[in-house]
Design a protein around this nucleic acid. Structure first.
Lengths: 135, 135
DNA sequence: ATAATAACAATAATCATTACTGTTTTAGTG
DNA sequence: CACTAAAACAGTAATGATTATTGTTATTAT
C-alpha cells in the first residue's frame, strides 16, 4: 500500500482540485495531457482509483450514466444529473437532512444497512433555457 | 412502435413474473434457454429493454453494480444491494415516505428535479450468517 | 394467400474500464 | 553519491456488459 510520489498523480489531483464539475477520466486525461503529452489513459484511471481508495477524492457511479465521475470534494453531499446534457451538479441540500434514512430503511429488513446512495434526475438550468428558446 | 407478439418475449416476461430477485439479462437468458434452446442473448436484451420502455417491467441500474437488473414489479419501491454477494433485495419501506424528497432537493437549486434514485448498500442476512460462522 | 413489418439467431462492434509488459522513477540505505 | 527494491509509467491488449448489423423467419392485417 506504499504510495510513491509521481508527477502525473500530482497533476491529476491538482486538475481535479481546480474543477467543480466532477470530470470523467477522459476529461482528466485530455487536460493533464497538456502538461504530460504522453500520459496514458490507463495511468489516469489507475491514479484516479488509487486516490479514491485513499479517500483523497470521491468516485461517483450513477446508474443513469455509463461513465464514472470524480470529485475533489469528499465531504458527503448529494448530486443532480441532467438527463439532457448528462451534467453532474452539486445540490445545496445538506447531507445531514437524510442521515436518519438508513435507520428508517432498516425497519423490517433483515440485513445490515451501511449506507445509502441518493441522487436526483431532471433538467438543468442551462438545458431548460436552451429548450424554451427552441419551442 | 407497433409491438408484435413473440413467444420469446412472452417467455421472458413470464419468467420475470415468477421471480422476486431482480434477475440479470444473463440469468433470464440461461433460464428462457430451456424452453427456447437457440434464443440469443441479444434477443433477451432487446426484449427486456422493449418491455421496460413499454412500462411492463422495470430496469434497475445501480452505480455500485456493473450489471443491470430487471423487475416485474413496476410499482415504485426501494432496493438494497449486498456488497458481499451483489444480491438485489426489495425493502419494506414505503416509497411514499420519501415522496417529498424531490421538493426538498429543489430548494436553492436552479434546475428542474423530476425524480430521485435511492438505494441502500450493506450486507444481507445470508452473508451476515455466513461470515459470523467463519470468524 | 399475400405482403408488410416486426422479431429472430448469429455474430460483429462499441465503449468504458482493467490487466499485462517491459521500461523508467522514486525513495530508502549504505 | 551509487545501489536497489518497489512503485509508476507508457503502450497496448483484454475484458465484459450491452448494442448494432445482417440475412432469415414469424406475425398480423388486408
Amino acid at each position: 500500500m506504499n504510495m510513491k510520489y509521481s508527477r502525473q498523480r500530482a497533476a491529476i489531483l491538482s486538475f481535479l482540485q481546480s474543477r467543480r464539475d466532477h470530470p470523467t477520466a477522459e476529461t482528466v486525461y485530455t487536460n493533464v495531457k497538456e502538461a504530460f503529452p504522453n500520459i496514458s489513459l490507463g495511468t489516469v484511471y489507475r491514479n484516479l482509483n488509487q486516490l479514491a481508495e485513499a479517500g483523497m477524492i470521491a468516485k461517483h457511479s450513477f446508474g443513469v450514466l455509463s461513465i464514472d465521475h470524480f470529485d475533489y470534494n469528499t465531504s458527503p453531499h448529494y448530486h443532480f444529473v441532467c438527463k439532457c446534457c448528462n451534467a453532474v451538479i452539486d445540490l445545496p441540500m445538506a447531507y445531514s437532512d437524510f442521515s436518519s434514512i438508513d435507520a428508517e430503511a432498516s425497519e423490517g429488513f433483515d440485513g445490515l444497512i451501511e449506507e445509502h446512495r441518493l441522487y436526483f434526475c431532471g433538467i438543468c438550468k442551462h438545458c431548460l433555457d436552451k429548450d424554451s428558446g427552441q419551442a
